[in-house]
Design a protein around this nucleic acid. Structure first.
Length: 505
RNA sequence: GCGGUCAUAGUGUAGUGGUUAGCACGCAAGCUUCCCAAGCUUGCAACCCGGGUUCAAAUCCCGGUGACCGCACCA
């Protein structure tokens, strides 16, 4: 499905749409509607359930979204704030525009506006300081953070967090006590992050305001043991950096033990495997559309010692796109914040050693995965058997993620409507959201529910009034079975359970 | 940010200076209908925003906003 088609469907069915539409829209901002939000929340809930399920020492916290300036100074996010950067189109060297101008005789270049700097660069035909070509790009602001005034006199400054992870680092000292001084300690955050992207693109993949789910695992590098045997039978689609350097483009199914033998730490491989299980078992992406792509030294941030992106092959966006990532960040984060805050964040372990904990970061793009769930699970069914000529769209979402678990459809509105309402109510009383579809023909109502991924349609008919049974229709097979209304919520409930990592099924 | 293409009901589209702005799907009300987008009746709903040219602009020009593709960017 093309991106435009998928987005048109999302807009039409109230999944999501461009923000501020009535003002012509705003780049990189999107609003979720009821079904999109229901899906998004289920995805978040599934993510939390899965990754917190890895250890009882992993916690979900909700830190502030505004970061005082000192925090982003320490984290490194503030470096080069407010200056303009130009890039040489020939040799790709980035330079500070104000520094270049001053070298060429412009005084007070620092403070100039973008347009002024741009005009001066063009006027003076300044060449690239490295290769000498006159191929400099236009200047652009380097820092991607949104800043806000802070405090009564507006003297202080804060920033909308560019990633949720910082709040976990800031909370480490407090949570070390709350968590009773255990390593590894995991801190998960699900929430908004903000980046002033220069060129938002591709709908939910480059947004200015987006939702991340991130788990920071703090650990002692000398004693982080993991139950690798639990994932030993998996075959992980991995494309290593050195294989890419050799020109390989296909991921290779690799056993976790082989990755460890190839030099990756067991703790890293274990979490890679759990990530893979999450994507295949919870989100139910086809394994052959996933790969772990190792970033090379140039591509990854300098503090990342090991970095694999988990990518999904998305037809709508023309290929593999990042949906999550695992970063082994060493002790960079706690080191920076120890220095920046003056608070020593090193801890004493059970063995009596002093250690500045290392961090393994698991990141997950919630919005991107909402998109991917549409791309990878929406199915165009061709014209079926005679009498069912029309093509239809079925969103084959896993039942445990479906925005509407159950729809109750009275075959005849007047005769069967009240029974349908009562049945839907019994589901809601059991904690399972259920809607009632009254209008249009039964076929059209099935089609509507299929398009929004409702896994079960319960149909009330004349037989229902006689014997208290309804038909239960399976979205994907369209097969129906007749069951008593009595006890039906409990019968269907297991289909909505969110998978947990300790279950092997 | 640069270059190219584009912007008409909820969705997809027709409309090359004068149209009651057409069509399909959709949605709603009613009739009919005992199971997969059926049928009939009635109804709803659009020219992205701001300037300009013209007797007259959805249509031509300028600016803005937004979308798509390519480049760059993604700390």
């Amino acid at each position: 499905m093309l991106a435009e088609e998928l987005f048109a469907l999302f807009k039409r069915r109230g999944v999501l749409w461009p923000s501020a539409e009535i003002y012509g829209g705003a780049q990189g901002l999107y609003d979720y509607g009821p079904s999109g939000l229901a899906l998004k929340r289920k995805v978040e809930e599934a993510w939390v359930g899965w990754f917190l399920g890895l250890s009882s020492d992993y916690y979900l916290i909700d830190p502030a979204e505004l970061l005082p300036e000192a925090v982003v100074r320490a984290s490194g996010h503030l470096e080069n704030f407010a200056d303009l950067e130009v890039v040489c189109e020939k040799c790709h060297t980035a330079s500070r525009a104000d520094a270049l101008l001053e070298e060429h005789g412009v005084t007070n270049a620092e403070g100039l506006r973008v347009e002024e700097v741009s005009a001066l660069l063009a006027e003076k035909a300044i060449p690239c300081p490295r290769c000498g070509e006159r191929a400099l790009s236009v200047p652009r602001p380097f820092n991607l953070m949104f800043s806000v005034e802070f405090g009564a006199v507006g003297r202080e400054r804060a920033y909308l967090r560019p990633e949720t992870a910082q709040g976990s680092y800031l909370s480490f000292a407090r949570m070390w006590e709350v968590g009773r001084k255990q390593l590894p300690l995991g801190l998960a955050v699900v929430g908004k992050a903000f980046r002033n992207e220069i060129a938002p693109r591709q709908v939910l993949f480059r947004m200015r305001e987006f939702t991340q789910a991130e788990l920071q695992i703090f650990f002692d590098p000398e004693s982080f043991s993991v139950p690798l045997e639990k994932v030993k039978d998996l075959s992980l689609p991995v494309l290593r950096a050195e294989a890419r350097a050799r020109g390989e483009t296909e991921a290779t199914g690799t056993a976790p033990s082989d990755l460890v033998a190839a030099g990756l730490p067991a703790f890293y491989v274990y979490h890679l495997a759990q990530e893979f299980r999450f994507f295949t078992r919870v989100l139910r992406y086809p394994a052959d559309r996933l790969r772990f792509l190792e970033k090379n030294e140039k591509e990854r941030a300098f503090y990342n010692r090991i970095h694999f992106d988990l990518e999904g092959d998305l037809p709508s966006l023309g290929g593999f796109r990042e949906l999550g990532a695992l970063h082994y960040r060493g002790d960079y984060d706690l080191g920076r914040h120890s220095q920046g805050s003056g608070t020593d964040l090193s801890v004493t372990t059970a063995t009596g050693r002093h250690v500045l904990p290392h961090v393994l970061e698991l990141t997950f793009g919630v919005d991107r995965n909402v998109w991917a769930l549409g791309d990878l699970h929406l199915s165009r069914e061709g014209p079926g058997t005679p009498g069912e000529e029309e093509a239809r769209t079925v969103w084959k979402l896993p039942a445990h993620l479906a925005p509407t678990p159950v729809a109750v459809l009275p075959l005849m509105r007047k005769e069967h409507g009240p029974t349908a309402e009562a049945l839907a109510l019994s589901f809601r009383e059991a904690g399972i959201p259920a809607t009632v579809g009254l209008t249009a023909s039964i076929g059209k109502r099935y089609a509507r529910e299929d398009e929004l991924g409702t896994p079960f349609c319960l149909t009330v008919d004349a037989t229902t009034l006689a014997d208290g049974t309804v038909t239960v229709r399976d979205r994907d097979t369209r097969k129906q079975e007749r069951r008593p209304m009595e006890g039906l919520p409990e019968h269907l409930r297991p289909a909505f359970f969110l998978p947990r990592p300790w279950k092997t099924a």
